[in-house]
């Protein structure tokens, strides 16, 4: 027992913190989601599974859940497409450039989330910078639908979560022996084949963690979907806040929140399972 303690005591503070501020609140949310609804108070007497029934029987909520998870997948995929070349480039850059490139990659995180989201509305809006410019150039007559749809949300989310893809992929790439690529070429592989058969598979551990990070962050983001998505695209997080704060329905809001967390968790598990690497 004392041996077990000695080996694991360093994670005690973090474990305690997680238990107190994550596990317990989740239990609280679970209990709340099963409370009976009420019209006059946040929740009523007794218990009921009504919140879940409403969520899964009303297509409005059910589709929102699907839409939210799909946006998360899309954001992760866009971050992968944009992030992989960046990570490849930085991994091959000289030390002098590397610091600067790191700074550029991290720069979206330096701007507050509200400011950044408003920034995107200025760019993407119907009278925003992009549409106004295109209209003035005579390239379009009606404004392009850049905002209040999934496109705008994915653009704004990918912008801020890109570093969470680049950094793990970069970590994986920098751990590689450069001679491995040379060995492949000496065996007859072209540069592209080396990328396809060697570099990409060896970057997979980084891609895997990056994709999970971006997906989880995107699915649980609130401010950006709320501002860029507006009233037309409602993600689960927006609905949770609606239910809890505007409609004052704590059991239903909790059911929404928990359903999102569980389904996102399942997707992460399935993804991790599918991309499992035997060689690690």
């Amino acid at each position: 027992m004392s041996g077990l303690f000695r080996r694991h005591f360093l994670i005690l503070p973090a474990a305690a913190l997680l238990f107190l501020f994550v596990m317990l609140p989740y239990v609280n949310v679970l209990v709340m989601s099963l409370r009976a609804p009420s019209d006059s108070t946040p929740y009523g007497e007794g218990f009921s599974a009504g919140g879940y029934v409403k969520l899964f029987s009303d297509p409005y909520y059910f589709e929102a859940l699907g839409q939210t998870l799909w946006l998360g997948v899309l954001t992760a995929f866009v971050c992968f497409l944009l992030g992989l070349p960046i990570a490849l480039h930085i991994s091959q850059a000289s030390r002098r450039w590397r610091g600067l490139l790191y700074g550029i990659v991290l720069s979206p995180l330096l701007v507050g989330i509200v400011v950044r989201s408003y920034g995107w509305t200025i760019l993407l809006g119907n009278t925003g910078v992009i549409n106004a410019t295109l209209r003035n150039l005579g390239l379009i007559e009606r404004p392009l639908p850049l905002m209040y749809n999934s496109f705008g949300i994915v653009v704004a989310l990918a912008h801020v979560f890109l570093p969470f893809m680049v950094l793990p992929v970069l970590g994986a790439l920098q751990g590689l022996d450069p001679a491995v690529g040379s060995a492949a070429r000496s065996l007859g592989a072209s540069r592209f084949t080396v990328f396809r058969r060697i570099t990409l598979p060896l970057a997979m551990p980084g891609i895997q963690s990056g994709a999970i990070l971006v997906f989880v962050l995107a699915v649980s983001s609130y401010v950006t979907p709320a501002l860029v998505g507006g009233m037309r695209v409602k993600t689960m997080t927006v609905m949770v806040v609606d239910a809890l704060i505007d409609q004052f329905q704590w059991p239903f809001g909790s059911a929404l929140a928990l359903s999102l967390a569980v389904s996102a968790g399942v997707i992460v598990l399935v993804f991790a399972r599918l991309t499992r690497m035997k060689w690690k």
Binding site: D177, A179, V180, S182, A183, A184, R185, S186, L187, G188, A189, S190, I198, P201, L202, M204, M277, W279
Partner: peptide
């Protein structure tokens, strides 16, 4: 890749995956 060589590296450079 067009030279028809076989090469052994100091780090072996095996494909870990």
């Amino acid at each position: 890749e067009d030279r028809d060589i076989g090469m052994v590296f100091q780090s072996y450079a095996l494909f870990p995956h």
